[in-house]
Simulated scan of single mutants.
Amino acid sequence: MTLIRSIIFLLYFIMLTLMMGVLAFIIRWFIPHYALAYAKCWTALSIFGLKWICHIQIDVQGLEKLPQDRPFLIASQHQSAFDTLVWMNILSRPAYIMKHELTRIPLLGPMLLLAGMIPIDRKGGSAALRKLTATAIEKAAQGFQIIIFPQGTRTSYGEHLPIQPGIALLAKETKLPIFPVITNSGLHWPKKGILKFRGTIYIRVGLPLSPTLPRKELLTTLQETWEKMEKQPF
């Protein structure tokens, strides 16, 4: 049943994305200020399909820690494509930091930019980081909450890769508090293959870290915080 449900969800997800991608031309041409709301609709329907077809539930813990009146940084583990969807409907004005290649995807790419996502050229070196921080400062001033995956790529559940230093520069320049986030999404939506395993995806928000921490200390503290949070049962 797992394989059958996974295939049905894949077909649902592809058809939903194609249909909404075509309809997105209306948003882009006539009402671009609705791009974020449209993106939220797509992610909400995607997650609805995940719950209904694959019997995967979502439990988000610690949302009360997030400020309601100012922007902030979410520093999340990244185990699954699910992580790139879920914050769209948790936060009021989410802005994911994403790889620049995604902006080239037909139909989807232009909408990502209109919705407020922040692309980064991972091969662009220091110039790309400067552009990233400038855009992030602008988004924060507009009230966006910024989501970054500091390890830079998807990992398997329980796997730890080095945290990239970009998160420290971003925190320093934006002066936003950093909220560490852990998840077990890789157990139910693995980074490879099409299988989706029934159960509950947990997301846990930790206490904020100060953006004034020195770079090395911030990276170490974030990693240690993730590890401490992982030891606590969901």
Rank of each mutant, 00 (worst) to 15 (best):
I163N: 01
T133P: 00
F30P: 00
Y12L: 03
T155D: 02
T225W: 02
K40L: 05
P211M: 10
F48P: 03
Q142C: 09
H55V: 11
L91S: 06
T103A: 01
A171M: 07
I178A: 11
F179V: 04
L108P: 00
L169D: 12
E227P: 10
Y202T: 11
Q151T: 08
I182P: 01
L36H: 08
I31K: 11
T200A: 05
A39L: 08
F13L: 15
A37K: 09
A136D: 09
F25L: 07
T225R: 06
Q142L: 13
L129P: 05
R154F: 13
F197S: 08
L66W: 07
T221I: 10
P233F: 07
M1C: 02
G186L: 07
T17F: 06
L73R: 01
E217H: 13
K123Q: 15
L161E: 01
H55F: 15
Y157M: 04
L114T: 06
I53Q: 11
H188C: 01
L107P: 10
A24Q: 03
L50Q: 06
G166P: 08
E224K: 10
K175L: 08
I146K: 05
V181C: 06
T133A: 05
I167P: 00
G124W: 06
L10I: 14
E159V: 12
R93F: 09
F82Y: 12
A35R: 03
I14H: 12
Y96L: 03
K228P: 02
S76I: 01
K65H: 11
K40W: 07
A37F: 05
I27E: 02
Q142M: 11
I178D: 09
L195D: 14
R215Q: 14
E230V: 14
R122L: 03
I118D: 00
A136E: 11
Q164H: 05
M19Q: 10
L3H: 13
L218V: 12
Q79C: 09
R28A: 15
A39Y: 07
E64W: 04
I53P: 07
Q57C: 09
Q151I: 05
E64N: 09
P165G: 02
L187S: 00
S80Q: 07
K192V: 10
P190S: 09
G206V: 04
I147F: 05
F197G: 02
F179P: 04
D59I: 00
I4Y: 10
I167Y: 09
P190Q: 12
I146G: 00
I120L: 09
E227Y: 03
V60I: 15
N89H: 04
E159T: 11
D69A: 15
P32D: 02
F197Q: 06
V181M: 09
A128R: 05
A136V: 01
Y157F: 14
A95E: 03
A81G: 13
I167W: 10
P32W: 06
G116Q: 01
P71T: 06
M98Y: 11
I137K: 12
A127F: 12
P119R: 05
F144S: 05
G152K: 13
L112Y: 04
I120Q: 05
P119T: 00
G125Q: 07
L91H: 06
L10W: 11
K231M: 04
Y157P: 01
T2L: 07
M98K: 00
P106I: 01
Q232I: 15
Q57W: 13
A127Q: 15
L218H: 02
T135F: 00
F48Y: 15
D59F: 01
E64C: 00
S76V: 02
